[in-house]
C-alpha cells in the first residue's frame, strides 16, 4: 500500500538478539524496575491516599452533589422555571412550582418557587447541564461533596430537605455566588436574631 500521508514512521521490529533470547537481561531489568518501586514505596511517601482518613483534593470545578443555593439574605434562589429538568439528559429532576404567598418573601427570592424539588440521584449522571441551564444560579454541583452510597433505593430521591443549602453560612457550598465576609456577618446576625 502506498503511503497516504507521507508522514508515516515505520516502526522497526528488530529480531531478538542472543542475549534477549536468553530471557535473562529483560527479566533482570524488569526485576530491577519493580524493586526500585518497592524501595520507593517503602521509603518515600506513598502515593496511595488512605481514604477515608485522608482525602484527595478535588478540583474547584468538580461536579459533585447538587445543592440548591440561597441568596445573600438566606432566601431560596430557585424559581421553579424547570429549565434544569428540561436540560437533564437523564430526566432525573422533578419539581412542582408554587406561587409565593405573602409573608414568605424572606424565604423565597422570586415570586414563584419550587414547592417540591426532587432529584433522583440514582438517575443523575452528574453531567452539570442543570447547573449550566439554571438562569437563577440556584442549582450547583458542589465541588467538595459526593453523593454517598446507601442501602435503599428510596433514599436516593433527594428532596428539598437535603438539597437546599443549610442556613448556617459556614456550611455553605463554595460553588456559585459567594458571599462577601460582610454579607456573611450580616446574615449570621440575622439568623441569630431570628
Amino acid at each position: 500500500m502506498e503511503s497516504l500521508s507521507n508522514r508515516a514512521k515505520k516502526l522497526e521490529k528488530k529480531p531478538m538478539t542472543l542475549a534477549e533470547r536468553a530471557y535473562l537481561p529483560a527479566i533482570f531489568q524488569g526485576l530491577s524496575i519493580t524493586m526500585q518501586h518497592f524501595f520507593r514505596a517503602a521509603t518515600k511517601k506513598q502515593i496511595t491516599v488512605r481514604y477515608p482518613e485522608e482525602t484527595r483534593p478535588f478540583s474547584p470545578v468538580f461536579r459533585g452533589l447538587h445543592v440548591l443555593k440561597r441568596d445573600e439574605a438566606g432566601r431560596e434562589r430557585c424559581t421553579a422555571c424547570g429549565l434544569c429538568a428540561v436540560a437533564c439528559p437523564a430526566e432525573a429532576i422533578t419539581m412542582v412550582a408554587g406561587e409565593r404567598k405573602k409573608g414568605e418573601q424572606n424565604l423565597y427570592r422570586e415570586e414563584k418557587y419550587a414547592v417540591s424539588y426532587e432529584i433522583n440521584m440514582l438517575r443523575c449522571i452528574f453531567c452539570g447541564l442543570c447547573e449550566e441551564a439554571c438562569p437563577k444560579a440556584a442549582i450547583y454541583l458542589q465541588a467538595d461533596k459526593m453523593a454517598p452510597p446507601r442501602y435503599e433505593r428510596d433514599e436516593f430521591i433527594y428532596g428539598k430537605d437535603r438539597l437546599v443549602e443549610p442556613v448556617s453560612p459556614d456550611n455553605r457550598s463554595k460553588r456559585g455566588i459567594q458571599l462577601t465576609p460582610e454579607q456573611a456577618d450580616k446574615l449570621r446576625t440575622q439568623m441569630q436574631s431570628a
Partner: peptide
C-alpha cells in the same frame, strides 16, 4: 503486601 509495595500501593492495612 509485597505485591502492593512493588506496585506503589500500601496493601491491606
Amino acid at each position: 503486601v509485597i505485591a502492593a509495595f512493588l506496585q506503589d500501593r500500601v496493601g491491606p492495612d
